[in-house]
Design a protein around this nucleic acid. Sequence first.
DNA 1: GATTGTGAAGCCCTTCACAGCA
DNA 2: TGCTGTGAAGGGCTTCACAATC
Lengths: 264, 264
Amino acid sequence: MATGRTHRPATRSRGIPEATVARLPLYLRALTALSERSVPTVSSEELAAAAGVNSAKLRKDFSYLGSYGTRGVGYDVEYLVYQISRELGLTQDWPVVIVGIGNLGAALANYGGFASRGFRVAALIDADPAMAGKPVAGIAVQHTDELEQIIQDNGVSIGVIATPAGAAQQVCDRLVAAGVTSILNFAPTVLTVPDGVDVRKVDLSIELQILAFHEQRKAGEESGQGGSEAAEDLEGAPAPSARAAAATTDRKGPDGDVPAVMPA
Amino acid sequence: MATGRTHRPATRSRGIPEATVARLPLYLRALTALSERSVPTVSSEELAAAAGVNSAKLRKDFSYLGSYGTRGVGYDVEYLVYQISRELGLTQDWPVVIVGIGNLGAALANYGGFASRGFRVAALIDADPAMAGKPVAGIAVQHTDELEQIIQDNGVSIGVIATPAGAAQQVCDRLVAAGVTSILNFAPTVLTVPDGVDVRKVDLSIELQILAFHEQRKAGEESGQGGSEAAEDLEGAPAPSARAAAATTDRKGPDGDVPAVMPA
DNA sequence: GATTGTGAAGCCCTTCACAGCA
DNA sequence: TGCTGTGAAGGGCTTCACAATC
């Protein structure tokens, strides 16, 4: 998982489950591809395969939107594209600002997926005066000083933070103060925001670490032992300061019934 | 959420819950920051605040790793850093290849977070012959032809795909055939992989769409109506082909008890 | 006959609340 | 006294399986 919500604990009871919302863009993408190939209808089985989920889940998801299928036939592709787009709010225009035009910010500015789906890059903002005026993805970069003005003038409610970690919270505060209520954060920091503001984060290094965890387990299985349970290599482990000599205190592993070799 | 797993439905019963694994990198980051400030111990409350979770969840998470805290005191920062690093497999070196050195690939190559945590960029690979030999982030880009050789020579098991969507599956197949078993996919496509291969995806446009969904709801609440329940603007809605005139067939909305205005 | 829509069951995760321990 | 570790309760999501419908 690359993301997390900061706001809205479990509210919106009458609405669509969060897990379903997160999959709607997936369905929409698959449906758009079908639409471009002029496929008129699709079954839950086919669409599920294209979106990489199972069909029961897909049908359940669609049931939250309404009864948009036809039994014995399937779903009307065009109709479903429209309904999901509307549900996601993509039938309206969303001006977006990207703050921090380094490698990543530039990549985001150039990313075609934004423009294609109701999102419009209203401005690129960077703190470096040398960047000001430079065109990136056909848009002139503006200086941070103008942030508030840009947001007001364009009615921006969604901001993307692609700055270094150190600057992220400050940028976030200014965005929120200027009226932004949804933030997509690429900086590796936990952002603090007031109630009513949504934050989603994308963290590249976290994703890799999760992969490494599973990769390590695979390697452990191959060699016939229970993955990381067996602490085979503890050289270099810093001893917990107050306990280095307390041999009686056994730190037990994840499973209470396994008297595994652990640092004592 | 920016990611999803393709493999391992719900296996690894004796292991650490997936949700916990996904948070370990967060804790590790917070702990590393404390370590750099030479803070010796930290309570679950403080650490949870720094990581952006609640303390009960953090304690539960740590309980899966073992009993690494001291009641009445808290957790030893250095010791916990080591234990989490080991659990995540970050005490070993992970050579990584990045395929597709466009804007995004370059951003990833330059991202410091990789190198800092056991990950080493072993090679940058691009299909464009004009890119070959060019240095990006201090590493010379190599041509796709050499992909298999690079993976073998470096013992790479983790690959990052930052190519256009159209090339992603093909690159994925080659990576897997060459021995890669974990893939981080930035291309907006569903990848198909054999059992035993993990795929995580990061999808920028999906994240924005999820934000748009919530943003739209906020706007709906402000104006006093129930968000997207009321289909106020249906101009341009494509009628479902087989049903355009079937006035008797009522498509009901998400709530069965709301006879909402819907296209008939 | 084919496929959707959905109660019901089960699983996983979160949260609570407090016993246990330093 | 203070804080961890954890059983138990609660909630949300997934999966099953089949009735309803075209």
